[in-house]
């Protein structure tokens, strides 16, 4: 896990700010996207490659909609005794369906996403985590989605 802030120049920042929301679906998308940025397609590829390697970018590609893909997705939380936190985190993270596990400041102090291949599997994974940890897992699926921008100004 890299925690340091990476160094980006003005062109890198412009690339991030421009291409988070979308990438051209065209025959020569790098050349097309680069034109607006004042560079050529080759330089755009080189810079994206570098930012994937230095950790500024996690991926370059599609972000899928879990439910429309036929999968299940939820947010879950556990109240973990402080002195057992590392141990429980290890058990929870063993589950392939668990992603984005964060410690947070609250009595419910462990928060993670569960993403499964089928909607039914969410409840099974929750039960399995409860058995493996001996702790109650609170399931908090979204009821309504008001906004999903999730863009970061670089």
């Amino acid at each position: 896990m890299k925690q340091q802030t990476v160094t980006l120049d003005a062109t890198d920042r412009a690339i991030i700010n421009d291409l988070q929301g979308g990438f051209p679906l065209s025959e020569e998308p790098f050349a097309d996207a680069a034109r607006d940025l004042g560079i050529d397609g080759h330089e755009l590829m080189v810079r994206i490659d570098r930012m994937l390697k230095n950790g500024a970018l996690s991926r370059f590609g599609p972000m899928y909609h879990a439910e429309k893909m036929g999968g299940g997705l939820t947010l879950a939380a556990i109240k973990v005794p402080e002195d057992d936190f590392e141990n429980i985190a290890g058990i929870v993270n063993e589950f392939a369906e668990v992603a984005h596990n964060y410690a947070r400041d609250h009595a419910l102090n462990m928060w993670f996403v569960i993403a499964t291949e089928t909607p039914e599997r969410v409840d099974e994974v929750i039960s399995e985590i409860e058995v493996a940890t001996g702790l109650k897992v609170h399931n908090m699926p979204k009821i309504d989605e008001f906004f999903v921008g999730l863009r970061f100004e670089a």
Binding site: K2, Q3, Q4, T5, V6, L8, I15, I16, L19, Q20, G21, G22, F23, L25, I48, M51, N54, G55, A56, L57, S58, R59, F60, G61, P62, M63, Y64, H65, K68, M69, V148, F152, A154
Partner: peptide, 16 residues
Amino acid sequence: GGIIKRFGLIVRHHEL
């Protein structure tokens, strides 16, 4: 169709 919510760069916000 919304199966792909976004297609593009996905950043690591901590690293930014």
